[in-house]
Design a protein around this nucleic acid. Structure first.
Length: 186
DNA sequence: TGAATGATCACG
DNA sequence: GTGATCATTCAT
């Protein structure tokens, strides 16, 4: 598998979100194919709507892992995009597990492989991703590779999950019919 | 439907 | 300092 180049992320977050489907993340001996993403730019629901110490990485970098702690118990994994052009990031919402499944099952305390990485908090737990990776590049310990390319007809576009926005943006992308995608609320 | 659980941020 | 909020998950 070919590593994804950092320059790939110097473009619009929405475009990156769609193109990330089918790429593979490797970390700590485990790997999985990205099957669900969401884009965040400078819209009101984005951390980059107002730049703070936490979100500054979205303004200053691209091609870097952005990991934050939510709800007192979970981590979310993002990759920064575009940098100074327009701050943005793509949230990785679900993976199709590939390697290291036994370890993921252990960390997630389940035998159901569709329950290992089918949510942003779940996949961080499965791959042992925490704040120590925040700010590192995609060429560091946690890496990103080209694997498959999916045509538009294999992709579903919907609004983002778990955030409240007045005018919901169609910035969520997932593989049509894939069983490892997170369960969307109705 | 609501509890768990703590970092982050706005306010002053 | 204090209080509200939170890009979630799980059990009830």
């Amino acid at each position: 598998m070919e590593p994804v180049q950092k320059l790939f992320f110097k473009q619009d977050a929405v475009a990156v979100a769609q193109k990330l489907l089918g790429k593979v993340i490797t970390c700590d001996g485990c790997s999985g194919m990205i099957v669900e993403t969401e884009a965040y730019k400078t819209d009101p629901a984005s951390h980059a709507y107002k730049i703070t110490p936490r979100s500054e990485i979205m303004l200053k970098t691209y091609g870097c892992w952005y990991i934050y702690f939510v709800y007192g118990m979970y981590y979310c994994l993002n990759i920064t995009t575009n940098g100074l052009e327009e701050p943005g990031a793509v949230l990785i919402r679900a993976l199709e597990p590939m390697e290291g499944i036994a370890r993921m099952k252990q960390r997630r305390n389940t035998d159901d492989i569709t329950n290992l990485c089918s949510g942003p908090g779940k996949l961080c737990s499965a791959l042992a991703i925490d704040r120590t990776f925040n700010g590192s590049t995609i060429a560091g310990q946690m890496k990103l590779f080209h694997y498959k390319d999916f045509p538009e007809r294999r992709i579903t576009i919907s609004t983002r999950i778990g955030i409240k926005e007045k005018n919901p943006l169609p910035w969520r992308f997932f593989l049509k019919g894939n069983r490892f995608v997170s369960k969307a609320k109705p």
